[in-house]
């Protein structure tokens, strides 16, 4: 009972924290605008910081928007390269809206990927973005994201009660509203919050455990294979880009 009460209080604090966010000064949007101005004035270091600041956010938007695509990282890379290129050439008139521009560029590129062959992959040299992205600490790395079914299955199995499993399925898969779920299953709002909170907390723990294992090389085989695949892909892309430049007489 004590544990449940603790969870409930935590959830209440989180919900009230959402409401109090309005009193906080927006940080990332302003920082992004300041970085955009620095890039436009020729500060190359600001480019790294700009990518680092917005990497997780943009990747989340791409994953959410194009859930069935397997080109999330390609879209992300292309979007950053397009926006950074525009900033370097001072083609952005309103740097304060840089995140709006970054988001819509990513979505446009995502639609382009959808229109083109499924095997289409980024033609942009990606090493720069990869380097920065690898260095940053994100909750959901690509390795973890690709294994999401495994994590979600484990959480659902651990929930035990069939009713709790049903709550998750109704909310996340059938998109039934919280109010309707509570009515149909005769739950209180707090009970619903507790189930969702517990499930998310467990998912987070599993992800953190997996990340720690990866860090300690316990899953080194998978890591090596994935890194190898990535390197081959990079090498191939680099070759195509060089060939393209050579044909155009750039190189």
């Amino acid at each position: 009972m004590r544990v449940l009460y603790y969870i409930y209080q935590n959830q209440k604090m989180r919900v009230s924290a959402l409401g109090s966010d309005k009193n906080k000064t927006p940080l990332n949007v302003e920082r992004a605008a300041a970085l955009a101005r620095r890039i436009m004035s020729g500060d190359a270091l600001a480019e790294n910081e700009f990518v680092r600041l917005n990497h997780s956010w943009l990747l989340f938007i791409i994953r959410r928007h194009f859930s069935r695509s397997c080109h999330h990282e390609d879209i992300l890379h292309d979007a950053f390269m397009v926006v950074l290129g525009k900033l370097q050439r001072s083609k952005i008139k309103t740097p304060e809206s840089i995140l709006v521009y970054l988001r819509s560029t990513a979505i446009n590129i995502g639609y382009e990927y959808m229109k083109k062959d499924k095997k289409f992959s980024s033609a942009v040299k990606q090493d720069f973005i990869d380097l920065i992205a690898d260095a940053q600490d994100t909750l959901l790395s690509q390795l973890v994201w690709d294994d999401k079914v495994h994590f979600v299955k484990q959480v659902i199995n651990e929930l035990g009660q069939e009713r709790d499993q049903d709550i998750l399925l109704q909310f996340y898969f059938h998109h039934v509203s919280k109010v309707r779920i509570c009515q149909n299953m005769e739950l209180t709002s707090e009970h619903f919050d507790r189930v969702i909170y517990r499930a998310k907390q467990r998912l987070k723990d599993l992800i953190n455990e997996a990340d720690n294992n990866n860090d300690h090389g316990k899953d080194s085989k998978t890591n090596t294979r994935k890194t190898g695949d990535k390197n081959i892909k990079k090498l191939f892309q680099s070759m195509v880009l060089t060939l393209f430049k050579w044909q155009r007489g750039v190189a």
């Binding site: 989180r14 997780s56 956010w57 989340f60 994953r63 959410r64 859930s67 909750l139 959901l140 994201w145 999401k148 079914v149 994590f151 979600v152 299955k153 959480v155 998750l168 399925l169 996340y172 898969f173 499930a199 998310k200 998912l203 987070k204």
Partner: peptide, 17 residues
């Protein structure tokens, strides 16, 4: 955002399952 990432993982994970 971090919280939403977990929501998204549940939504898309359940869809795949």
């Amino acid at each position: 955002l971090q919280d939403m990432q977990l929501d998204l993982m549940f939504a898309q994970g359940l869809e795949e399952i």
